[in-house]
Design a protein around this nucleic acid. Structure first.
Lengths: 165, 165
DNA sequence: GTTATTGCAAACCATTTGCAAGTGT
DNA sequence: ACACTTGCAAATGGTTTGCAATAAC
């Protein structure tokens, strides 16, 4: 939906993470660096499991345990680099939240695919509503459920990920 | 936010549930009836655990197992009587979805309280966006995070539910 | 050296499920 | 009889955690 490379990012995700860790007296270890790099090498949404798998595929010989992946994902979220977008098949799904504009998702109930969309009006409406009840709004999560174009086609259905189950 | 009794409901939740069950060749057992009644006796949002607790409190002598509660909640959702609104403390949170207008929630990060709001413009915007990508939209879930008025007050804070943890 | 971090295995915990006994028609 | 249900206890499965060994500064 949006070209990552075209965005204005003055500091690399790794650098940003290091800064965050520093404020907490924590270190940017090899493992953490490996994880941030892998996470930001690809824009797809992902869950912990998929990330573990991707890292295992790497030929670099570097290995990171599942626990460390979980711990690091949490920290990346705290650092404002990632955010949880949804829950699919009982797993938390993450996406980049750094150098990436606010947006929401259409979620296909059939194939679980996520489709991003961006609309400023919604945020504006929310601002107004929040103000009314003196709610200090930080962020929102909007998931729109339905069936995507591909899965709506009666005959030639595509990416039926859920068929695997 | 909205007075339940004032809504136009021609068929009782129990009746509606019975109808749904019938279409599936299922029965409205004592247990299921007990659960629907309890669920619709109160408008607060709730999770499975709280419901189990509420039912255990009842002096009626009737008991329903946790499994049955879970199974029935799922069926009430399928019947369109309940819907999952959010996840709080790793638990699915339900609310009535029958005789209750579409709405969304402000969720206080401090006390976990949910504040409902209703806005038709958002649904309208979504319709337009969905149409663009030929997405057959069914429903949406919008959670707005932030800090509620009470929790914003520096000195006299209220309902700090999370302090219990 | 001291403090943070990792990996492993075990623990957690909400939710689901297999199954034998029970219930509705 | 027959099909659906229940409750129990056990399983599931994503995520978290205790702890001894290891790495960063």
């Amino acid at each position: 939906m949006l070209n990552f490379e075209s965005l204005e990012i003055s500091v690399s995700p790794t650098e940003k993470f290091k800064e965050y860790l520093a404020t907490k007296g924590k270190r940017l270890t090899q493992e953490r660096e490996f994880i941030v790099t892998e996470v930001f090498s690809n824009h797809e949404h992902f869950d912990a499991d998929q990330l573990v798998f991707r890292m295992a595929q790497q030929k670099t010989g570097r290995k990171v345990s599942r626990s460390t992946v979980y711990r690091t994902l949490t920290q990346l979220e705290e650092a404002g680099l990632l955010r949880k977008v949804a829950r699919t098949n009982d797993k938390d799904v993450y996406e980049h939240d750094y150098g990436y504009p606010q947006h929401d998702h259409f979620i296909c109930k059939s194939c679980s695919e996520l489709f991003e969309f961006q609309n400023d009006d919604i945020a504006e409406i929310l601002e107004r509503l929040a103000e009314k009840i003196n709610f200090r709004m930080n962020e929102h999560r909007l998931e729109v459920y339905g069936v995507c174009e591909d899965c709506s086609r009666p005959t030639q259905r595509r990416h039926k990920k859920l068929d695997l189950i």
